[in-house]
Each structure stands twice: as C-alpha cells, then as structure tokens.
Design a protein around this nucleic acid. Structure first.
Lengths: 351, 351
DNA sequence: GCCCTAAGCTAAACCGGTTAAGTATTATGC
DNA sequence: GCATAATACTTAACCGGTTTAGCTTAGGGC
C-alpha cells in the first residue's frame, strides 16, 4: 500500500509539485486546464495531503485539543460531557479539524503540563477550556504559550457586545421564578465545588433572583456526587425547619437529595436540578430539571475557536436558552412539608 | 514566542543537528560528554520535538484514533463509553500517544469514510474498533488500508492461546446462575440490536447457560433505549404468563423494563442488567446489575494496540472478571409474580 | 610504521507538503 | 514595434525533525 503523494501526481502529469499544490489548494498560478487535470488525477488516485507534511509546512496541525479534568467517576456519571464532546466534534469535523482528547485526574496542575506539552510540540492549534476555576491560571498560561483558546460558556452578547458568562443569569431566573410560582419562600441551594467560577456565579445569580422575589436562600456547598448530597441532606436538613424547596447544581446531586429526603420520610418536597438527563427522568419521583443544551453549547465553543484560529474577530452569539422540564418534584409549597419532616399524608402534588 | 528547535540546540553547542538528534533519542553515535551537554541544554530550553516534523520523518503520528458510532442520545446516556475512553486515554497518554476522537451518527458507512481518510492522511497510527457488527466490513477494510487495529473486547486467552471474545461467556454464566439460584425457570432476555456481533454472541451464551440449568428463555430484540424497552414490555409482557424474570442487555433498557412493570403493577419481579451504572443504583427499585469494567477493558485494548504498533506479537491477556451487584430486583421466584400481573402484596424480597 | 577498525562527528538526503522568487511566454498599451 | 504587464509554470528554499553515507581521528594488532 504505497502512498500517493503530490509528487506522484506531478510526475504523472509532467508538471512540478508546485503547480500541483497550487491547483489542489485552489490558488491562482495555474491555468484552468492544468488545474482540472490535477484535480481529476488527484480524485482518481484518492490523494489526500499527508497531515504531518501539511502541518509541518503550514505550522497548523488542524487539530484542536480538549482536556477533561475531573474525577473519573464523575465524568462517567454525568452525560453532560459526552454531549458536549459530540457538539464540539461535530463542528470540528465539518471544518476538517480533528479533536485530540486528554483526560486527567483532578490533581492540581495535571492539565497545565498537558497544555505546555501541546504547545511545545505544536500538536494542537488551539484548545477549548472547560470548567474555569476561580483565579484559574489557564487563561494566562495559554496566553503566555501563544496557544489560542476559548473559554467554554463565554460568548459576546449581541446586544451589549460584552463578554457574558453562559446563559447563567437567565438560567437562575428560570429556576427561581419556578420556585416562586410554586409558592416557596425559603429554599436551599446545593452548589457544586465553589472553586469553580461558574458555581460562584450561579450562587450570586440565584441570590440576586431570590432577592427580587423576597425569597430566603441557604447555600450549601457540595461535591457533585450523589453520596455527598445525600450525606449533606441527612446531616443538615433538620436544621432548616422553615425551608421547603431545594435547588441542586447538577443532576447527580439531585438524586442524592431524593434518596435522603425519601429516607427522612419527606415524601413531598420541591426539587429542581440545574441539569437535565436521563437520571432525572428515571428517578422516582421524576426530578424537575433545567435542560441546558450541552451539545449546542459545544457547537458554539467549537465555532468560536475556529473563528479565533482564522484570526477573525469574535462574532456575537445569541444565548442558548435552557428550558425547564417539569416533573414530579415541582411540588407547590402548600403541599410541601419542611425538609426532613414528613409531610401530611395523602396530600397530592399539584403537578 | 519563537520556538526552540533542534537546530537551535545544535547551533548553541556548535555541533550538527544529527548529533543532537542522536543524543536526544538515546541512540549510539555520540560521546557521553556530548550527549549530556545536549540533554542538559534541551532540558533547560524545554525543547520538545515538533510532533508534525517527527511524524513526517518517522511516518508515525503518535496518535491513535477511535470512532464512536452510535446515536448521539444513546452515547450521552450510557456511561460505558466515557469510562472506556478514560481507560484508553490513560494508557495512551502514558505511552506518549494522543487520542483522536471522532463521533459519527449511526448512518451506514459514516465510519468507513473516516477510516479511509485517516489512512490517506496518515493521521493516526492505528485504531480501536468498537461495537463490531455481524459481517462487519471494518476489519477487512482496515487490513486493506494497512491500518493497524484491535477489536475492542477481543483478546488472546492465556490458556488456550486462542482469540476469545470478551468475557462474555463468563458474564452469561454469572447472570444465568444468579437467576437459577433465585429459582427462576422461565426468563426473558431483552437483547440489544442483533446486528451487533456481541449481542448475537450474548444471546448464544445465554441460551447455552440456560440449557445447562434447564431454564426456558425467550429472546426479544430491542434498541438499547429506555423507551424502546418500556414499549416492548407493555406490548408483550402479557404474552409471557409463565415468565418471572428479565435480563436486559444494558442498563438503560433495564430502566424501561422497571417503568413498564411498575405501571403494570408487577411490583415484584426479578431483573438483571448486563451493565452497571449510577442508573441502576438510583432506580427504585435498585437494579441488580453485572458490573463490567469498561475502564479496565479500555486499558487492555489500548495496551494491545500499542503492542501491535510495536510489531510485537499479541500477548495473552487474562480475562477481566465482571462482578454481580445485587440490588432490589434480585427477587426469588417464590415471591415473583408472572410478568405483567400483580404479585401478592406484602411479599418481601429475599435480598 | 602500516593497516584495520571503531568511535565520534557531519553533510546531505529525505519525509511530503507549501511558497517566495525567478523565468519563459503571451497579451496589452501606446 | 517595443516596453510593460500579466499568465503559466518551475526552481529552490523551507517547515523540523531522522537517518544514511562518508569523513576524521585515535587506538590496537602485528
């Protein structure tokens, strides 16, 4: 299986490789007759440029990288990442770019080494950065390395022209509005780890929205795991006697909340998960959840990165509206006992 | 941010790039003194070989490819793939290899085009093939393309030295033994799509194991989705009056089975899923499941591929034993009503 | 002292493309 | 008819490594 190269094409047509290259890349410098002959032969021989040769001469690898930095177990249980990857990959492959994937543990600095290496080896043209932390060193590092990047979830707002973070404020509004409509006055918000920038932002947004409604919120930090959320509820639910509803920052923790509250005999409680997935759907009771659109978000991030790589100005992007999927845990405050205490038996949810 | 190249190192030390290359690659041809000077300088300048230059001259991309070919929704809901990727990636990165990921829809031939392209562009050194179909064209294609590959889930048995498929026979035995122990004489096995080779093999293995125990099995083909399994149970459960247990070929379908049987008021039934995940754990009732180890399996496939790429003979690999996680749906036949009919109220599961 | 070998190093080719610079050939302007 | 410009093409350098072949020099055997 000898490989067909551009010089093979040139040889067969009796022209120089330069002409062949111009023809194949749609650049001026060859007659239309020659161009056609080259393209025809290339198609017939099923010629494709060697990725490494092209990468070497163009200083472009046609590959973008993503580092997934999370606990392996968490990665597996959250469908979010797979959908995200799917969206990213879809846009990239359409643009003829490859996706280089790296998964590292949560150990500090593990991802940094990968970025350094990729930069030194010129292995990727750019990266999509996920899960930005508070005081995240990565933007500065990547800037220093001269590695183009986009922060997933950040876009230019078409109206203000400013960088905005995700559609996070809108998301918070949808969730808190829903709780308010159901009549809840006191809610608990279980956040993910607060070293993550978006968790801090979500907390702030929820606080603001709740204030608008005159709703009391207690914030409790957790670790995105089901077991963690379950433990948290068991240990602390009794201390929140006036609180009737829970918001969970992801679907996996929401499951833990359900388990804990079921055991505490609080069989009627309101719960909203800030992430939808099959998990929320199959849980009994079904968990009301905010369906974000990781695949669409992934497409957007990939598109933005391609713009950056083309040296184009970042174009404004419309928000990606999340939608609330109402399920069993949308229980009105009237039927909702305080957390950790059994609700009146026979009271039905107004679904 | 000018890049440090091998000729920069050579220039600074007043030697040729050839010597530098020999030194950096641990090959003979340079004195120990020179070698040390080169290595020291390289370390100080944080030199890394340009991946494309090295790929071009070595005809080795140091990248392996994986094509995930499944319905996007299915990919997201099954944690299996993420764990698998994690295992593969772990071994690859340890060996300094990159993982190029491509996701294509289930459309026929979509993956074929990707392999052809990767081969023509010499973009990857080899691929791991997932989800082998019956009469799968890929092995032949890859052979023809001269692209090294391994079939995920296939290994050389250390005892017989033969190619064996996964640990599928053992898996079937564990599951059927469990059903037999619980006293079930008639079970339903809901398979995944039967164009998949391993689904056909599983069916055969289950049939053989059941015959050993004198157990009757009905096979019903489904599509790996929860909704599909639910519909299947609703429509056909009544036709299996003597059957008391269900085996599902994956966790997502098991959820559909639970939903259907719950609605059919069959609140006591035996169910085993041929795949464990958070889903089985959070479901109510908890679903007994066979915990395979996708991450470990992924590590094995990656290791095997690296062996192939090194031109080494494939080494025999021990099986990766699955373990059965007993949960609520391990219900003894005595307490188990026929599918689709309410069981005696108050009967407890012997867990 | 001479031949042979090995060690240590370098020049140059090569991997397969892209591209700047240069050279014929033809067309255009006046 | 001649200078000028545009067109079509080629030569050669380049991207950053690896590797073959060849050249010195020193050491060993006789």
């Amino acid at each position: 299986m000898r490989h067909v190269t551009i010089s093979e094409i040139a040889r067969q047509l009796g022209i120089s490789t330069a002409s062949a290259s111009y023809a194949l890349n749609g650049r001026p410098g060859v007659s239309e007759t020659t161009r056609k002959r080259v393209l025809d032969l290339a198609a017939r021989l099923d010629w494709r440029p060697s990725s490494s040769a092209r990468a070497l001469s163009r200083s472009r690898s046609d590959t973008i990288g993503m580092v997934l930095k999370r606990d392996p177990d968490l990665l597996g249980s959250e469908p979010y990442y797979m959908s995200l990857l799917r969206g990213v990959e879809d846009v990239l492959s359409e643009a003829g770019q490859g996706l280089l994937l790296r998964m590292v543990g949560a150990a500090r600095g593990a991802d940094i080494a990968v970025y350094r290496r990729w930069a030194a080896e010129r292995r990727v043209d750019g990266v999509i950065v996920l899960d930005l932390a508070v005081d995240d060193p990565r933007p500065e590092l990547l800037h220093e390395l001269g590695m183009p990047f986009v922060l997933h979830g950040i876009r230019l707002d078409p109206e203000t022209g400013e960088q905005v973070v995700e559609d996070l404020v809108t998301d918070a509004r949808i969730i808190v509005d829903h709780m308010a409509e159901l009549g809840h006055r006191r809610i608990v918000y279980i956040t993910g780890p607060l070293f993550l920038a978006h968790e801090v932002r979500r907390r702030r947004a929820v606080a603001a929205e709740a204030a608008r409604h005159g709703i009391d919120v207690i914030f409790a930090e957790c670790d995105y795991t089901s077991a963690g959320a379950e433990r948290l509820m068991r240990e602390r639910a009794a201390g929140w006697p006036q609180f009737t509803g829970v918001v969970s920052s992801n679907d996996v923790m929401a499951l833990g909340v359900v388990t804990a509250l079921r055991d505490l005999k609080a069989d009627r409680f309101a719960l909203v998960s800030w992430d939808d997935s099959l998990l929320c759907n199959v849980c009994v009771p079904g968990i009301t959840a905010l369906a974000r659109h990781p695949e669409v978000q992934g497409r957007r991030s990939a598109r933005l990165l391609l713009q950056v790589l083309d040296g184009r100005e970042l174009l404004p992007e419309p928000p990606i509206p999340s939608s609330l999927v109402i399920r069993d845990t949308s229980v009105a405050a009237a039927f909702c006992g305080p957390l950790g205490v059994a609700a009146p038996v026979g009271a039905d949810a107004t679904e």
